[in-house]
Nucleic acid binder design. Structure first.
Length: 236
DNA sequence: CTCCCGATTGTCT
DNA sequence: GACAATCGGGAGA
């Protein structure tokens, strides 16, 4: 991962001519509709402590009343409150009685939407990610499977309940170069945006409604992208 | 590789 | 009481 020292212009999210690329995405990046943010996140690098992940697959979830597949469809609750907060925050939820999944919130405070982080390529801290993925089991996990799927991604990055609400665009010193103090616990590096010709889109995975909405985005032919599964109603 | 199934609990109807 | 923005293991092709 390449990180460049920021300039004062970068701190304000304004790039002047000849200034280096900003170290991290600022809040305005996320203050857009989720279906616009989701493809734009591909190729970006999510950093949480020692683990860095190049995002390869995302899904957009829309605003209350308009997207029946979104956790916010029926309005604000205790669980989805973070999605109604300001953009650029981590929304972590618990599902299937055993898994955590992570989103980055979009649009301004009061509007509930976000992008589910579905898969990525671990580019730093792979040893830590592997230890988390194999803890308490003897199974073998290949490098490209470390974060293939939203629940696996959450494990690799160490996201659980306690990380719900974390700010990925926290203000503060941006001298977060390796070996220097001030590195935020959580941030998104701009990475290398993916060319539009390499971005694919299709129906979202595992959702029981709005299956015609093509709001799943992934990098074409990337080995870390998860297999698509249509929703399967559970029988009892 | 492709099905198919069970696990396990928070959340909302 | 139903079911979930999932995963890992096992059977079979």
């Amino acid at each position: 991962m390449t990180v460049t020292r920021p300039t004062p212009d970068d701190e304000r999210g304004e790039r002047g001519v000849g200034t280096p690329a900003p170290v991290r995405l600022t809040r305005d990046f996320f203050d857009r509709p989720a279906h616009q943010v989701a493809p734009d996140l591909l190729g970006r690098v999510l950093v949480h402590g020692p683990v860095a992940l190049r995002i390869t697959e995302t899904e957009a979830y829309g605003v209350p009343g308009e997207d029946p597949a979104s956790h916010t469809y029926r309005g604000r609750t205790a669980r989805n409150a973070v999605m109604f907060g300001p953009p650029g925050h981590l929304y972590v939820y618990f599902t299937y009685g055993m898994h955590f999944c992570a989103n980055l919130t979009c649009l301004p405070e009061g509007v509930g939407s976000g992008v589910l982080l579905r898969a990525g390529e671990v580019i730093s801290g792979a040893e830590r990610a592997l230890a988390r993925r194999t803890a308490g089991s003897a199974r073998v996990v290949k490098h490209h499977d470390l974060a293939k799927g939203p629940a696996r991604l959450a494990v690799a990055l160490g996201f659980t309940r306690e990380h719900n609400g974390l700010d990925a665009c926290a203000p503060g010193p941006l001298a977060g170069l390796p070996g220097l103090p001030g590195l935020p616990e959580l941030f998104v590096s701009p990475g290398e945006p993916v060319a539009p010709s390499s971005i694919r889109s299709g129906p979202r995975t595992g959702v029981s409604s709005a299956q015609e909405t093509p709001w799943r985005f992934w990098i074409d032919a990337d080995p870390t992208v998860s297999p698509h599964r249509a929703h399967v109603p559970r029988r009892r």
